[in-house]
Amino acid sequence: MRNESLFVMSCAERIALHPTPHSIAQIRHRVRADVKQLTAPRIKTNVQFRVVFVQGEGAGQSQETVFTSDPFPLTEFGCP
């Protein structure tokens, strides 16, 4: 699954440079799959994802949110 994680990272980088429906859809698809594994899906449950870049600054870190998706239903067509 490591290469799958790397593809998600590529999509996040593409979104940071230039958001495209394809990259957003790819991450949505994986968010849905991951969330469904954690919780039983309910009708009308909406989720959202953020792309956050973390950077080292001296001894600490800084975070920048470069993209926030629109809320989308946990199930593809609004039903489990």
């Binding site: 290469n3 790397l6 593809f7 590529s10 593409r14 495209t20 394809h22 990259s23």
Partner: peptide, 8 residues
């Protein structure tokens, strides 16, 4: 399919 290389 992946709109570019899958693994960079």
């Amino acid at each position: 399919r992946f709109q570019g290389p899958y693994n960079g």
